[in-house]
Design a protein around this nucleic acid. Structure first.
Length: 272
DNA sequence: AGATTCGCCTGAGAGC
DNA sequence: TGCTCTCAGGCGAATC
């Protein structure tokens, strides 16, 4: 499932193929996703030059020469591949953005939790991006910030850290891994965690995300980079998906429980 | 306001 | 082999 490192991996993979390329044609085979692809999407994109890419949280943005931006969210089963035009279609290939040089971006998403949207005149803030918390690599994000935001909150720290209004990009896998590294039990009430521990946590969140980006993301089921290659961070997971297996640090069996409707993994000995 | 639950989807895997 | 059932989950919307 694409979280921040996976989206960043895809962005880096896609960027060299799309920047300074002109969109020659867009094909929308399936518009029904998290939100429908706008009816005039293809028409609006045709002839536009892509001038850059960026990422906000788990949204991938293509910057167009007229100030519009394409918003792409991969949901949990989405892929964005760079292919040659005419590449054989498979089930769930929903959108193609063809470029002038014979390449194309192909959006594929079996579960259709993803989205492909057009953000017209991107000078004003987009409703889906407004209200998002800071990027984990920004100056604004640190232990003091987390500590300040968490005061008076009774929710589990794992839910708190996964809340995109607090900080973006810490999805289920990376929240679990960050909390393990910080030695914090995921069920602990966010408001009860001390400043020093939040400082460790903030730095672990950044470390985990950074390492995952360097490994090309985590491939558990669906994820692939823009070239179709798998990521490798799953080899470095300490707790996620390791229910009943021995903790890599102390050999105590890893435990699984459900927090906020999501499966959560932790070491009962290393995390307090 | 904060916390919790719901709903959107399909594929993989388990069980029969 | 093939069916049915359960689970996975990002995240906005609805509800408590």
């Amino acid at each position: 499932m694409p979280e921040l490192p996976e989206v960043e991996t895809i962005r880096r993979g896609v960027e060299p193929y799309v920047v300074d390329r002109r969109i020659s044609r867009v094909l929308v085979r399936e518009a029904r996703m998290r939100w429908p692809v706008p009816p005039d999407f293809a028409e609006q994109l045709r002839g536009r030059l892509i001038v850059g890419t960026s990422r906000r949280g788990k949204y991938l943005l293509l910057h167009l020469d007229n100030g519009d931006r394409v918003l792409i969210h991969l949901g949990m089963s989405g892929r964005l591949l760079v292919l040659d035009q005419g590449h054989p279609l498979i089930k769930h290939d929903h959108v193609d953005i063809e470029l002038g040089d014979g390449k194309m971006l192909r959006f594929h998403d079996p579960r259709r939790f993803g989205a492909v949207l057009l953000w017209r005149h991107a000078d004003a803030s987009h409703p889906l991006l407004a209200g998002m918390g800071p990027e984990p690599f920004s100056d604004e994000f640190d232990g003091d910030y987390l500590h300040r935001m968490s005061r008076g909150r009774s929710a589990a720290i794992k839910s708190f850290v996964m809340d995109g209004r607090i900080v973006v990009g810490a999805g289920n896998i990376y929240a679990a891994e960050s909390l393990f590294r910080a030695g914090i039990r995921p069920t602990r009430a966010a408001g009860d965690v001390s400043l020093p521990r939040y400082r460790v946590l903030a730095s672990m969140i950044r470390d985990v995300l950074n390492e995952a980006i360097m490994q090309g993301g985590t491939t558990l089921r669906d994820f692939a980079g823009a070239d179709g290659a798998a990521g490798y961070f799953q080899q470095d997971l300490y707790v996620y998906g390791r229910d009943t297996q021995p903790c890599r640090s102390c050999a105590t069996p890893i435990r699984r429980l459900v927090i906020g409707q999501r499966s959560s993994f932790f070491c009962p000995r290393c995390q307090r």
